[in-house]
Simulated assay, not measured.
Amino acid sequence: MAFVFKIIEKENINLVIPLVQKLNGNKISFEVLEQRFSEMVNQNYECAVILDEEKLIGACGLWFCTRHYSGKSVEPDHVFIEDDYRGQGLGKKFFKWIYSYALSKGCEAVELNTYVSNSASHKFYFNEDFKILGFHFLKKL
């Protein structure tokens, strides 16, 4: 199979919303995500996707920033690959592409958050040599 990894154009960002809804168990409406993504694409955010031919099968948001403790970094966010494509090494290839892309943008580090309940992702990230640095806290206002 010839998969394509690329950055999706800002004007096509809504194409990833159904994948993000699956990742979040359809807890956030399309309309809310549409509004949020319209704001995100105007910040330090890009979205990488995986295509199988023309079919969108995976997505990963990329937040770029500079932090005092890690330098210029990228934070992969809402990483999702369709169920039928999992367990085939595609995630590893996707992250290899992401690392290369981040290096081309001058990044020194990759850091991310993952849901506590997503143990499959924990195993994947440990296998990618990520280390647990701290806890992510959230308080809704």
Rank of each mutant, 00 (worst) to 15 (best):
L51C: 08
T114A: 12
E11Q: 14
V74I: 12
L23H: 06
K139S: 10
I57E: 02
F135A: 14
G25R: 01
N42V: 00
A120Q: 15
K10P: 13
F30A: 02
E54G: 07
E46W: 00
I132W: 04
K92P: 00
A109N: 12
S29T: 12
H136A: 13
F94I: 00
G61L: 05
N44G: 03
M40N: 01
F130S: 04
K105M: 13
C65F: 15
A59K: 08
V49F: 00
I17E: 03
Q43G: 00
V4Q: 09
G89D: 07
E46C: 01
V79P: 00
N12T: 02
G106T: 06
E82L: 14
D77K: 06
K10Y: 05
S38T: 07
C60H: 06
E9S: 15
E39G: 08
Y101K: 14
L51K: 01
T66Q: 11
I50M: 03
S100Q: 14
R36P: 02
D52C: 10
S38H: 09
I98S: 12
Q43P: 00
D52A: 10
Y85F: 15
E75W: 11
I50P: 01
V79H: 02
G91R: 02
K131G: 11
F94G: 03
V49H: 01
G91Y: 03
R36T: 10
N42P: 01
V20D: 02
M1D: 04
Y101A: 05
K10Q: 14
I81L: 11
E9V: 03
K6V: 07
C60K: 03
E39T: 09
A120S: 15
M40K: 12
K92D: 05
M40V: 00
F64Y: 14
N26M: 03
M1R: 07
I8A: 07
D83M: 07
E39I: 08
E11I: 13
S100L: 11
E46A: 11
K105E: 12
L51S: 05
L23S: 09
I81K: 00
V41K: 10
V16H: 01
K139I: 11
F37D: 02
F94M: 06
A102W: 04
E11S: 15
V116D: 14
L62Y: 09
I57T: 08
V4N: 07
I13F: 10
E75Y: 07
Y101F: 14
L138H: 08
I17P: 08
H136I: 04
F95H: 07
E128P: 04
F130G: 05
W97G: 02
V74A: 11
T114G: 08
E54Y: 05
L56R: 10
F130R: 03
R67W: 15
G58F: 07
P18G: 07
I81P: 00
C107A: 15
E9Y: 08
K55W: 06
A109P: 01
N26H: 11
I81A: 06
A109T: 11
I98T: 10
K139C: 13
V32P: 01
N118H: 12
S121E: 09
G87C: 06
G87H: 06
L141G: 01
F30L: 06
E31Y: 06
K139W: 05
K72E: 10
F94P: 01
F135P: 05
F80Y: 14
E31P: 01
N44L: 07
I81R: 00
Q35V: 09
K131H: 13
K96M: 10
A48I: 02
L51P: 04
K131W: 06
D129W: 10
S121F: 05
V110N: 02
Y45D: 00
